[in-house]
Amino acid sequence: MGLRDDQVERYSRQILLPHVGGLGQEKILAAKVLVIGAGGLGSPAALYLAAAGVGRIGVVDSDKVELNNLQRQVLHSTKTVGELKVESAKRTLAALNTDIEVIPYNMRLTSGNILDVIKGYDIIVDGSDNFPTRYLVNDACVLAKKPLSHGGIFRFDGQAITIVPGKSACYRCLFPEPPPPGLVPSCQEAGILGAVAGVIGVIQANEVLKLILGIGDTLTGKLLIFNALDSSFRSVKVPKNKDCPVCGEKPTVTRLIDYEEFCSLRRKDAK
């Protein structure tokens, strides 16, 4: 394939790295990464992936840019308030790097469409903002055997884990079921410091680049926990769970569930 002169120039500072080189850069340019959510996590993740030259970046989001997003969702800007997030994201990423293809998906992922969307990608980045989507993404990636970088944030806390289906623990190995709705406040209700989203989103981009290049150790089998107040990073072990509902020995989740319905059913049960 070979790199053009402008590509050698654009990516020179990473091509210089012994772990990357020209061949590594070609791998990055050939990679297809889907970023789910163009929000607090998806913004920094997509920006760094685009800058590094990931050849095809899909961005999934069904929202429009709001003024209160701009404090952390650095893909968007004052003048794109009111636009579709995926269109705003596409413009920002295309302006950063003319070398890559950005594919917008203005949709909400469901059990009916997710497998079709992730089919065309090598690696998935979960930067969504709700439990139903996170469990849906995990299960879909396990069923479709797509590597997944998961990140989550809450107030001053962040978490990240990398999931390589068949090899390492999945999100349900870690937390078998989502909490019932209402028990855990969302970002809108709880607040979030923008820089926390930046830290975790960039860690996700870093995980993806390592997966593409096949270098280093990823966050497989361990959960990274960041706390912004004491600037601490810790990690805990996450073994594969043989009783995991989706990737265990006797899976109970063998096809995708409509999680919103599932969650509201659970809520009814609890009453």
Binding site: G37, G39, G40, L41, G42, D126, G127, S128, D129, N130, F131, R134, G151, G152, I153, F154, D157, Q159, L174, F175, P178, P179, V184, S186, C187, A190, I192, A197, L223, I225, R234, V236
Partner: peptide
């Protein structure tokens, strides 16, 4: 001992 809940914000 660490108590670690699932968090979903993004």
């Amino acid at each position: 001992v660490s108590i670690i809940p699932a968090i979903a914000g993004g």
